[in-house]
């Protein structure tokens, strides 16, 4: 049995395919404003790479912001359930998932079977999300993927005055032009995001083992800063953390097929 999951986020769109409980492959590409188009694109790329067609899929579940309008999905589920399921499948010791996406931040608790126990979400304010880093990186003239590595060299992280992503964009740009060290600015921005996320996670409260998923899991600066603030070490996942949602969706699809 071959099933697929498609996770349509605000910044990226992901697809995963599993066969009889094993991962065949997954794909992550930038999203466009058109969710249906984005979903088709990522699924086309993945299926082509795996030498499969839509007809080979027994079932597909969609998740993420755009989940309800994906035509090739038989069902859709919240990204919270899918993230929890996907992470737990890859590492059954996981009980807490921290998922920081493009515009929101979620903290999820699952039980020993991977079932959702509790979650907290900040979706009213994009401070401390991917957008903050994206705008800061733009102001610094670098790619968002470079922020983590750049910050590692910092001995004196800058303390920023603001938390709103738009104000951070301006403050970072002005600091760069006033000659402040990009390394320290990058560290300051990562610390800011980590602070916001830590605040949310503490309210859950978290339980070991903890894993980070979503785009920000790849930013080593944010991950290290967050581990320091929560006084813990995260476990890692054997697969790309950004693909967890799509993977969980594919697993739910196998239940339904």
């Amino acid at each position: 049995m071959i099933t697929a999951g498609c996770d349509v986020g605000s910044l990226t769109v992901k697809a995963a395919v599993i066969r009889d409980g094993s991962i065949l492959g997954y794909e992550i590409i930038p999203a466009s404003a058109d969710a249906i188009n984005s979903a088709h694109r990522v699924m086309d790329v993945l299926l082509q790479r795996l030498d499969l067609s839509y007809e080979d899929l027994d079932y597909c579940v969609s998740t993420g912001y755009g989940r309800k309008i994906i035509p090739f999905a038989g069902d859709n589920l919240s990204e919270i359930s899918c993230h929890g399921r996907g992470a737990h499948f890859l590492n059954p010791s996981i009980r807490t998932i921290i998922d920081v996406g493009g515009q929101d931040c979620k903290a999820i608790r699952v039980n020993r079977k991977g079932k959702l126990k509790k979650f907290l979400m900040n979706d009213k304010c994009a401070a401390g999300t991917g957008r903050t880093l994206e705008l800061a990186a733009e102001s610094m003239g670098i790619d968002i993927s470079e922020l983590g590595q750049l910050s590692e060299k910092s001995a004196n992280p800058i303390t920023l005055s603001f938390i709103c992503s738009i104000l951070i964009e301006i403050e970072v740009r002005q600091m760069i032009l006033e000659g402040e060290d990009a390394v320290d600015i990058a560290a300051g921005v990562n610390n800011l995001v980590a602070s916001r996320v830590a605040g949310l996670v503490r309210n859950l409260p978290p339980k070991q083992d903890i894993v980070m998923t979503g785009g920000l899991a790849k930013n080593t600066g944010v991950v290290t800063s967050l581990e320091e603030k929560l006084k813990t070490t995260f476990v890692s996942l054997p697969e790309d953390p950004q693909a967890i949602g799509a993977l969980g969706a594919a697993l739910f699809a196998a239940d339904r097929a």
């Binding site: 404003a33 515009q103 304010c125 994009a126 957008r131 738009i166």
Partner: peptide, 16 residues
């Protein structure tokens, strides 16, 4: 949307 970042996305959707 109450947040400027989310309002940005909302406006982009309306334009599309």
């Amino acid at each position: 949307s109450q947040c400027v970042v989310q309002a940005e996305s909302e406006v982009v959707s309306r334009v599309n």
